[in-house]
Design a protein around this nucleic acid. Structure first.
Lengths: 243, 243
DNA sequence: GGTTATATACTTGTATACAAGTATACTTCA
DNA sequence: TGAAGTATACTTGTATACAAGTATATAACC
């Protein structure tokens, strides 16, 4: 039963969050980073003790994580599912599904405001790169895609995104943190890629959009090894809580 | 503050369900049927009193309904969103999206077992029609589509379905109950339609699948008026809990 | 030893209590 | 009458208590 002094999830993003969300976000990061291994059985009581909160927020957190498919609520205990290669590919599928759907809608819309908004976000990303702020960069990256999705005003597509977003966010965070340290040159490519995406929207060019979308996926999801590296880094000196 | 003696949701489906799910299912039915109008503000305390449970399961229920997009959790009170025409169309979109995705996967799979399973379900549906059991029919109808979706073993597509399913279930239940009373002849068409769907899977015929899928949607979702009729019927003599 | 019973230490789900915050209505004062 | 402050009756989020059920291990018995 080890106390985690350092939290993986950016604390500043939780300024106004309830304890339940806090626990969910931190647990999610630990699961996706691999710090908590697949197959681990989580106990409400143990988690409550670990996070020094009561069972109520913990229960809430577990419900959230279960709806995101990264844990499975069983009769006794919540077993960690995590993200293996298969799940990563599945997320890829769903993102492709919804973002292409969104794009089809965008083709028949006035995208002036959207493009302006996206350009702004892209500038923010560049600043984040300059100051080597991986967390801020990740935030803007997620926001970029969310902005596109929100623009079509489709509550049920947004529902899908809302279920996917936290996992995406964690993936991107972990991936970017590693790369800011080790593959700094990647970011020029990522920025170019997002410029391409904006361009595709501006020109309403389907194939260009698909292309940049695929490249974007590869940038985040193709690098599962990065995540494993990240896990190794992070868990260095940090004991797991296996009994 | 009226006591609802009759529940809209089939009680036998809740035999082993926790109080939270019970409340969620019943509330969902009341919202989708229109018994609880859009814009209504739900109070945890009031709901707890109405259902004679504590706030814990009510909170759980509200979280569930919020994730399904039929209520919106705000600072104070949960406001009912409900299903207007726009939402119905959006659900239509998402079902089309995921079921066509599933079909593409099916094309490269051994569908022998699936077809057998679906045929069985279809027979069950016929029996339900014969005995005029609207609830059983609805159950099998939902199961039919869920079986198709599960067959490709895609946890994130299943995640989308899991979020959509309860709403679909309610829609189908309400729609079928009305039609068992008033449009009995519809059911021969619905059965034919499902046979078409099975045929499409068997032959791996995309266009046939899309066609039957569209017809199936129209059967459930095109009839919003039915729902309003159903609401009128059901709320006859039942007071709303305004104030 | 092997099998069955029982005790114990868990688990979940629900009820209840409480703290902190927010809208509403009322009172007070100019 | 109008504005500002205060009291009150709500709200949410969290902690805690308890009942019912389920695994695990110990003990008893054949």
């Amino acid at each position: 039963m080890t106390e985690h002094k350092e939290f993986l999830y950016p604390e500043k993003w939780l300024s106004k969050a309830a304890a339940g969300d806090r626990v969910a976000c931190e647990l999610r990061m630990r699961i996706i980073s691999g710090l908590i291994e697949s197959g681990t059985i989580l106990s409400e009581n143990k988690l409550a003790a670990d996070f020094t909160v009561s069972r109520s927020p913990v229960r809430e957190a577990l419900k959230i994580l279960a709806s995101e498919n990264i844990i499975r609520l069983e009769r006794m205990g919540a077993v960690v599912v995590g993200l293996a290669e298969k799940e990563i590919e599945e997320i890829y599928d769903v993102r492709l599904l919804i973002e292409t759907f969104v794009f089809e809608r965008l083709v028949n819309m006035d995208i002036h405001e959207l493009v302006k908004e996206l350009s702004k976000i892209l500038e923010m990303m560049k600043v984040a790169i300059k100051f080597q702020d991986a967390d801020e960069f990740s935030f803007q990256d997620v926001l970029f895609h969310e902005t596109i999705i929100r623009s079509i005003n489709h509550s049920y597509i947004l529902m899908i995104w809302n279920n996917l977003k936290p996992v995406m966010e964690s993936l991107i965070l972990l991936s970017m943190r590693v790369r800011f340290k080790e593959k700094y040159e990647d970011f020029t490519r990522i920025v170019e890629n997002h410029e391409l995406y904006i361009e595709a929207i501006k020109k309403k060019d389907r194939t260009l959009m698909i292309k940049s979308l695929h490249q974007n996926f590869d940038d985040v999801q193709g690098k599962v090894e990065d995540l494993w590296m990240s896990q190794q880094m992070l868990s260095k000196g940090v004991e797991l809580e296996n009994e």
